[in-house]
Design a protein around this nucleic acid. Structure first.
Lengths: 345, 345
DNA sequence: AAATACTGATAATACGCATTACCAAACTAG
DNA sequence: CTAGTTTGGTAATGCGTATTATCAGTATTT
């Protein structure tokens, strides 16, 4: 490749000094440096015609902004499994970055041999090429969060993070309230024997659901069956659920709910007449899949948008780091109905 | 931002020079600089204990490379409509970039007021932040391609491009052969009256399909019906197809084929007994949608991978720009069957 | 005519790192 | 004792940019 054009090249062409080019480029006010309109214009034109762009490396050496937002995903960003999980966030991020005039730098860093996780900090990390960074993922690394905070590097997490003694700026989804609302709705419909399929602790997004659920039913309904979820065989699961006398099943993962529903139907039972099914959060896709599960929509695009806005605000100093929870909208669906006297099998 | 540890800090602590720290850090061989094991160890320990990481900006200033690959999409990258189109490419690109140790810079640039298209070159373009660039999209801008080539900037297009007098490096899909194969297969099954739904010119990917199709059937079968496709009302389309006496319909867009098939079925006809349907290319998703259309798979991930590899090769000077077409694998499906005496309606 | 103010720049410097040329001291060979 | 060699480093430099102090020349005021 023919060497990149530098300010010196432009300076030579315009018969001025490199300093002048820099001053024109950054449009400094008359107060700090006087450059007559004529010279200014001459340099400007060279800049445009050569397609010159300041080298981000050199700029960040002298502590200037690059109009680049970093995006780091703890789990591999694209590889298929995660695809549907991350892409909605990226939609929102890209849209907002575009509006704000920032480009996106996707950190691809490889997973370490040690624990198979990606690391933000590692020899050769290009984190500082970006003016700030968005963090996505299910599970975060504590030490890295601390280090980010201590180094005062602008960043925003997507998803609630109570790590690092609560100093992590984030835009999350209010799983607690949304889940509690669904549970309350179920109780109003007469359900008192409930099953819950999914993890009850671990990442915030998991434990929040369980807590919202547990608090809502406290005293007025009981959990007769609780399973960890994720790839369970639907048939034995259904056996246990019916055995326990549950009239409704709450699923954390849509992926678990789909085969379960099939199992219910193929056993001659109907949903929600005989058994109600509720999914705790899903993306827009869920409704497009044909089956109208009762659930709530996690506003992933909007989370991406607001996180990006917040990050830009922090970078430009117009906003201080915050912690925001967005409301999840209820999706009525067709799988939640009134409780019915239990059919013992 | 609290100042970070630099090589100078470490040098002071270890009572050596900054140069020595750099030499130890990069583990240069004895041949180029002799550092006794003792000193080496002392410095190493300081590096570890301080958690020092070389500033990527300073590093790339020296190496004249940013280890960043740009990604430019002519159509908006993520916004939902295009989502499923671009993401498979991005999977492959991300995977390979990661393996090669490059990060990805997504150019978000806005569409111009004038024609609603995005531009690579515009005031403030950060193209040159990347060491090279991947180009995605259906329709490219001729002038910009020329400018890229003339400026000797490393880039690779995804999808065949015959613009700019054939000097565009690309990794494309062999639509011609794949389409011709399907057409030949159809003829072997006795089809001679064919319908073709989709554009016959415009972008290479469109015209390639038509040409592969037209050449394959030349003389031995005839096109009794040709429609532009894209959001056609399926009912009238079906009328015209049957009217014309076609025994098979080729669709460029899966999105057109799905409602068409529904229309056929709801009219009491069966596929492929009464009418065969073939889709000219689709992503992996197609098969997962439940309906097993006869088609061929465009290897989008692989295109992304090979394009990225080529780009890195060009940047590092280990490879010269090339033009590559990848084979599309046939997907047998269940919608292509033997031709049958036509039912006149 | 001398002092002062303004104009239009530029030279110099720092940022953090990699790299090369060079050097003083210790050691060895003759 | 001198010349050469090896050891263990260091000083200097450049990468491309932003920024500040400075300056030569011209215009204006006293």
């Amino acid at each position: 490749m023919g060497r990149r054009v530098t300010q010196r090249d432009i300076a030579r062409m315009a018969s001025v000094s490199q300093a002048t080019v820099s001053l024109v480029l950054n449009g400094v006010s008359e107060a700090v440096a006087r450059i007559p309109a004529e010279t200014r214009k001459r340099v400007q034109e060279l800049i445009v015609s050569t397609g010159y762009v300041a080298d981000p490396a050199a700029r960040s050496l002298v502590n200037a902004s690059n109009r680049i937002l970093g995006v780091f995903t703890y789990e591999p960003a694209f590889p298929s499994g995660q695809a549907d999980f991350f892409t909605p966030f990226l939609f929102g991020i890209e849209e907002t970055a575009q509006n704000q005039g920032y480009d996106l730098l996707l950190f691809t860093g490889r997973a370490t041999e040690a624990d198979g996780r990606k690391r933000i900090f590692h020899a050769g990390s290009r984190l500082r090429m970006a003016d700030g960074c968005l963090l996505l993922g299910i599970v975060f690394d504590q030490d890295e969060l601390l280090r980010l905070i201590e180094s005062d590097y602008p960043f925003v997490a997507i998803g609630r993070r109570e790590d690092a003694s609560g100093r992590v700026p984030y835009v999350g989804a209010d799983y607690v309230t949304a889940t509690a609302d669904l549970a309350a709705q179920a109780m109003k419909l007469g359900h008192s024997q409930m099953a819950y399929v999914g993890p009850v602790d671990g990442a915030e997004s998991r434990s929040d659901r369980w807590q919202g659920f547990a608090r809502a039913i406290a005293g007025n309904a009981s959990v007769v069956c609780q399973e960890p979820g994720s790839g369970l065989d639907p048939e034995p699961l259904l056996d246990r659920v019916l055995e326990a006398g549950a009239t409704i099943v709450f699923f954390v993962e849509l992926a678990d709910a789909v085969p379960f529903r099939d199992a219910v139907l193929s056993r001659g039972l109907s949903v929600p007449e005989d058994l109600s099914i509720v999914v705790l959060g899903s993306h827009v896709r869920a409704s497009a899949e044909g089956i109208g599960f009762t659930t709530y929509a996690v506003p992933r695009e909007e989370m991406g948008r607001q996180a990006t806005d917040m990050l830009v605000g922090i970078i430009t100093g117009k906003q201080s780091p915050q912690q925001i929870l967005l409301k999840c909208n209820q999706v009525p669906g067709e799988t939640l109905g009134p409780a019915k006297a239990r059919i013992r099998t």
